[in-house]
Amino acid sequence: MFSEVIDGLVEMTADQILERFRDLELRRRHIDAEQAILVAAIDARSIAQCEGHRTINGFLRAELNCSKNEAAEVRALGRTVDQLAGVGEAWMSGRIGRSQVKQLDRARANRRISDRLGPLVPMLVEQAEVCDSPSFAELIDETIRCLDEDGAHDGRDDSIEHRNAHVSAVGDGVVINASGGSPLEAAEMIEIFDGFVEAE
């Protein structure tokens, strides 16, 4: 099949090759947008769990045979087209591409501004259509800065508010996982852990 495509290129003019290239990009954007909204539906309806996976990311890693980071990106893009009105439509119609949607996701994923982002989305999508990639990334940076006035201070508070810890029995051992919190809490936890190690 691949060799047939290569053979077909010999008979194509430069204009035909360019037309085919551009057509494939539009089709890819359509498919990527459709996949993203399907991922959002799989997540919302807990279909991954029905298929025997504990998380949507685990499901995506198995189905797509991809890394953790790639699975997380696919899930994030699904959330973006689901939560930001107009993004999925612009992506599916080919007006914006994956890189622009990833930039929009960067703003959506910021919990400190996500609830204020909605009214700006139409303008951001419009700019995504006409700006080059670096300029659009700068626009997203500026949007985040304007909406997140307290920045780092709120980042610390956000980390404390969304801290979590888990202790799990795995086989004959134990797995401890903690994230979030403040530097002071980290130092306290290290001191407690080191005390238990010393006692042991």
Results as ranks from 00 to 15, higher is better:
163 R>Y: 01
24 L>M: 11
127 Q>I: 01
137 A>E: 06
41 A>M: 07
63 E>H: 11
126 E>S: 15
162 H>D: 10
83 Q>S: 15
32 D>W: 05
106 R>P: 03
52 G>K: 02
29 R>L: 12
158 D>H: 08
179 S>C: 04
50 C>D: 13
173 G>F: 00
86 G>H: 14
101 V>I: 14
70 E>G: 10
158 D>W: 07
81 V>R: 11
150 D>P: 01
196 F>A: 01
7 D>T: 10
20 R>H: 11
3 S>G: 08
104 L>P: 13
8 G>K: 10
174 V>G: 00
114 S>D: 13
79 R>M: 12
2 F>A: 08
176 I>E: 00
55 T>E: 06
113 I>K: 05
38 L>I: 09
135 S>T: 15
115 D>C: 12
49 Q>R: 08
117 L>Q: 01
97 G>P: 09
158 D>P: 04
112 R>K: 06
126 E>H: 14
67 S>T: 15
179 S>Q: 06
156 R>D: 09
8 G>Q: 13
193 F>P: 00
170 V>I: 03
26 L>E: 10
45 R>Q: 11
98 R>A: 08
98 R>N: 10
38 L>W: 03
102 K>I: 11
179 S>F: 01
57 N>Q: 12
89 E>V: 13
52 G>N: 03
189 M>R: 01
102 K>V: 10
190 I>H: 02
40 A>Q: 06
36 A>T: 08
62 A>R: 11
186 A>Y: 11
12 M>Q: 13
4 E>H: 11
23 D>L: 09
190 I>V: 06
38 L>K: 07
156 R>Y: 07
24 L>R: 13
49 Q>C: 03
134 P>C: 04
41 A>W: 08
4 E>Y: 06
20 R>P: 05
59 F>G: 01
93 S>D: 14
185 E>H: 05
51 E>C: 14
95 R>F: 12
6 I>Y: 08
